[in-house]
């Protein structure tokens, strides 16, 4: 193949409007292709190179930093309404590499690779010496707290039995001794008040997800649990991006292919959330 002239790349300003549009398109892509954890938001564009593409268009090669928000990826709340996780709650940063094609004024992601990492304990304690840190999600106290909280939620529900989708966040609080957890749930075809064997329950064809926050407080001779769950409107049967598809973004362990998680980006605004159920 005749070697054409060496392609030279252009290095625009990282805060150039076009660069920012490409970066925002890339972050939207991540948020609609990640199957667990929280939505991320653009924090800083580290590097950009723009390569001409034959016969037309150009490819933005981007390195960007993101920050975790408090919205779970299953939460249909628009990203612009999601709060950035503050430092005192033990922030989580994403480091992403993208290649984004710009053609006919449209941006489409060709490649995405992200890794997320929590802030260091030192940094958290610099701003808040007594703040709790993130705990391993398989810690026995965390697993127990989620189990007790979900049982309490289902016990007061007069609707579907909800099963656990994933534990997304946990902290072991020293004073008062307690465990704080956040987890995602999904409605099943069982009635909460009649379920004797949850293993026999199946997720609804029209997935209905929820997101719960709970605190299990140890006290003399027992424990107290407080749990709040927000149940979202059922997802219309949208074609789901299969987790093992080549373009699935790697921002953590891929969700179980048997339970594809919907891309919420294209739900009509009217379909969004119902009020929280509180226990």
């Amino acid at each position: 193949v005749p070697v054409g002239p060496a392609l030279a790349y252009n290095e625009p300003n990282c805060d150039d409007p076009e660069t920012e549009r490409a970066a925002l398109a890339a972050v939207d892509y991540i948020n609609s292709h990640v199957f667990r954890g929280y939505k991320h938001i653009l924090n800083q564009i580290d590097k950009v190179r723009v390569w001409p593409r034959r016969p037309m268009g150009e490819v933005f090669e981007l390195e960007i930093d993101t920050l975790e928000t408090t919205c779970h990826v299953l939460d249909p709340t628009p990203l612009v309404n999601c709060t950035v996780r503050p430092l005192v709650e033990h922030a989580v940063e994403g480091d992403c590499d993208f290649r984004v094609l710009k053609q006919d004024g449209q941006f489409s992601v060709l490649f995405a690779k992200c890794d997320s990492s929590p802030d260091s304990a030192e940094d958290v304690h610099k701003v808040c010496p007594d703040c709790p840190l993130l705990a391993p999600l398989n810690d026995t106290k965390v697993v127990h707290a989620v189990d007790v909280a979900l049982t309490a939620f289902n016990a007061q529900s007069n609707g579907s039995y909800f099963q656990l989708v994933e534990v997304s966040r946990a902290q072991l609080v020293p004073l008062p001794p307690s465990t704080y957890v956040e987890f995602a749930v999904a409605a099943t075809d069982c009635a909460a008040q009649e379920t004797t064997d949850p293993a026999k329950c199946n997720l609804l064809a029209e997935k209905q997800y929820g997101f719960c926050k709970a605190t299990l407080t140890e006290k003399f001779g027992g424990e107290d649990v407080a749990v709040t769950c927000t149940v979202f409107q059922p997802q219309s049967l949208l074609p789901q991006p299969q987790p093992d598809s080549p373009d699935a973004a790697a921002l953590g362990p891929v969700e179980d292919p048997a339970m594809p998680v919907p891309s919420l980006a294209d739900l009509p605004a009217a379909d969004l959330g119902v009020g929280p159920m509180v226990v």
């Binding site: 990282c14 938001i41 950009v48 930093d65 940094d123």
Partner: peptide, 27 residues
Amino acid sequence: KVVEPGIVGGPGPVVRPCPGRIRYFKV
């Protein structure tokens, strides 16, 4: 071999194009 375009050093300080601004805080 990619020919990296030479940044012609014009008069005055060259604006560092990257990294860009921090929108929230640095972890």
